[in-house]
Design a protein around this nucleic acid. Structure first.
Lengths: 194, 194
DNA sequence: CGACGAGTAGATCAACCGGTCGATATGGCG
DNA sequence: CGCCATATCGACCGGTTGATCTACTCGTCG
């Protein structure tokens, strides 16, 4: 019963789909996923009801992994909320510098799925809210005067950084982002724009 | 010879593709474009060599339009570089509030085209650079100590705002962005994070 | 007039799309 | 052992993809 038993078809499907959707986008064919996972066509429909169900589950699992990564990045940075927040941006700098970085999964999913009723959208919306709360929690601990507002700003910086990283502009976007993040975090008086 | 002559097949193809790719993504079928444009199949291949060529040309034409829009937004704001820069963000606030806003075309294209050799990528890269130079020019006129750096930061805010607008987070992202943009523009001493 | 180029209409192609279905292998239990 | 439920398999479905090709129409200009 160990977790080291050979993963079943469901698990293999999820892993293959997670990999292929990230590398080739949401448009990957079911055939490609099945081939990569070495799973029969029918099993996909038994487990997930169809391609949409598989994609939604892939997104859901990814959000859990990524949220956990945010948490452990922050925990590794110590107890000071300021350090914990900035550690997130340092980690993102590493992420976008990875040679196989292909942009934010969730933004790509939202932009690639034209149907607003697709179950994937609910997953990405929930994910963004979880991350926002994570940031807001640290800002509250820091005694920030407008934690909700600042959290929204930090999330905006995260989105911008991931977008910039995906589109590979020459100037190092991570440093510029970190600078703005520090400003957001260190703003102690509300409404002061300069 | 007036521009009011009925547009030819090439023009109709571009308009239809521009509209359909924005609404349904880069994955739209050639058939759908042909039907919308009321153009024979062969004409597409005569004029653009294939779907990729059509998409690249659609992107190129869009960048020209959008760059012109940036310019006229800034010109309408007067001569003060600060006003001209902030006008861009006010305009973006309007853009993302439009009911049919579906995210940034170019970011969507970059994320949706897995092949890094696709001609569309060169177009989006060039566009981003043109906008960056546009912003940098105003920052220079403003006497900003690090115009290149600040332009990269503003571009990052633009990307973040467009991403946030596309994913519809509850809190109004435009106001938060404008606040950060003001900070970037008004930073007069280099290296000062607060 | 007649030749020409651009455009249209549509058949055809191999590849692929997402989805359905009967057959089969496997494993627990009487 | 025999039996059955379940999980998995892979052939098959109709439709669509992007692309190529032939045949026809039409307006223009020499």
């Amino acid at each position: 019963m160990s977790t080291r038993t050979a993963p079943g078809p469901r698990e293999r499907l999820l892993r293959a789909a997670q990999d292929l959707t990230y590398r080739h986008g949401m448009g990957v064919g079911v055939d490609a996923v099945l081939k990569e996972a070495n799973v029969a066509r029918r099993s996909l429909y038994e487990h997930f009801g169809g391609k949409d169900g598989l994609l939604a589950e892939v997104l859901r699992r990814s959000t859990d992994e990524d949220e956990a990564r945010y948490r452990q990045t922050m925990n590794a940075a110590g107890q000071d909320p300021r350090d914990r927040l900035l550690a997130v941006f340092d980690e993102l700098a590493r992420v976008i510098d990875a040679p196989d970085f292909r942009g934010c999964r969730y933004l790509a999913a939202d932009l690639a799925l034209p149907d607003p009723a697709h179950p994937g959208h609910a997953v990405t919306r929930d994910y963004r809210d979880r991350v926002r709360r994570l940031l807001e929690h640290e800002l509250v601990a820091l005694g920030h005067p407008r934690p909700g507002h600042a959290a929204a700003q930090l999330l905006l910086l995260v989105d911008g950084l991931l977008a910039a990283g995906a589109t590979r502009q020459g100037t190092d976007p991570a440093a510029a982002t970190r600078e703005l993040a520090e400003h957001v975090i260190d703003t102690r008086a509300p409404g002061v724009s300069r």
